[in-house]
Design a protein around this nucleic acid. Sequence first.
DNA 1: GGTTTGACCATAA
DNA 2: CTTATGGCCAAAC
Length: 116
Amino acid sequence: MAARVVSPGFHRRVYTVVRTVPEGYVTTYGDVAAAMGSPRVARHVGWALAAMKDEEAPWHRVINAQGRISHRGDTGRATLQRALLEAEGIEFKGDRVDLKRFRWWFGGDRGPNPGS
DNA sequence: GGTTTGACCATAA
DNA sequence: CTTATGGCCAAAC
């Protein structure tokens, strides 16, 4: 079903993309934005997830390009996110995630981390 | 309909 | 390694 390709807002699109991320993998805000066709909207991805209340999506699988958890002051969110990722098999190096291994690539016809 | 803000990213120092 | 700055675009006020 068309799955509502067109949504009343930009957020809906973000949730749709984030839902495509399988368990055990993570992605970055920039990649989600790029998957939509505009890598400049990376900020809105995080903003959309912050506004996510009625919708459901694995927001914890979305991190910044530095492989770190963004919390903008709210450390509580970072703690929860880290716990959720570790529960899915994501390994943390200090406060960072190994994007080289867990970064999911949208449209992964050949799986994550295409080429190398 | 203009201003402010924001869970970012890339580059520079 | 970290911190600072510019830019980009959509939603909220």
